[in-house]
Amino acid sequence: MTESLAITRFSDLANPTRFLSLAGRIIPWLAGLTLCLFAIGLYLSFTTEGDYQQGETVRIMYVHVPAAWLSMMCYTVMALSAIGTLVWRHPLADVSHKAAAPLGAAFTLIALATGSLWGKPMWGTWWVWDARLTSVFVLFLMYLGLIALNRAMDDPSKAARLSAVLILVGFVNIPIIKFSVEWWNTLHQPASVVRLDGPTIDPEFLIPLLVMAVAFTFLFFTLHLMAMRNEIWRRRVGAQRRMAARMAGRGT
């Protein structure tokens, strides 16, 4: 404890025990806040008027857009954690990107499913291979691949380093996929998907959309903290089991 304040803070955060107690205190608040936001968001999204062009289906957007946004934010969180793993070898960073992968996959799945359900009445087909949809689908596959990679290895720190490499390569690759797919498929009319930027969107829709987006974001952070906590516990169980095995040899 002779280091400067900054270093003490850093090592405090690096300490999983410290993290656990912090998470234990924060999680109930976050969960409550998420619940409130969802209540408001859902209320708003069912009371607003339908769009004259899209009809009632605009309500699907209140789920679809936040999920799609999260699918990308989750990957960004994972990429940052991956840098943490590779550069600082921070144990919490390992835990963070491992815990985020299933969440990312789930939110991407929601985005794909709701997009598909919106596309059927509006476009007349469940799926088109346009640039945005395709790159989201590729993102989904990458999440699943990362989960599979994490599951395939016993040693958690080795698994974390290898998947960190894969995450970063994927992060570089995603814009490439997006642009190449756009070149590959020029058939598709642009801006079919609701865009947040510009005046194309009415405040009437914007407010529920934003509330839902914030609610989803909080949901993500709550679940992420919980999943990280689970992962730390999982590692402790592993460590203690190995110790139990060693003690059984020496004792008795």
């Binding site: 289906t57 309500r59 699907i60 789930a106 929601i110 499913a113 359900l117 009445p121 679940l223 919980m226």
Partner: peptide, 27 residues
């Protein structure tokens, strides 16, 4: 398009519920 809206909310709720249940159970 009540059917599609209900279905998309239903699927999202289901996935989120499964996710929460999994995280909870895992913990």
């Amino acid at each position: 398009h009540g059917f599609y809206i209900a279905l998309s909310y239903g699927i999202s709720a289901l996935i989120v519920a499964l996710l929460i249940a999994w995280v909870w159970w895992d913990g």
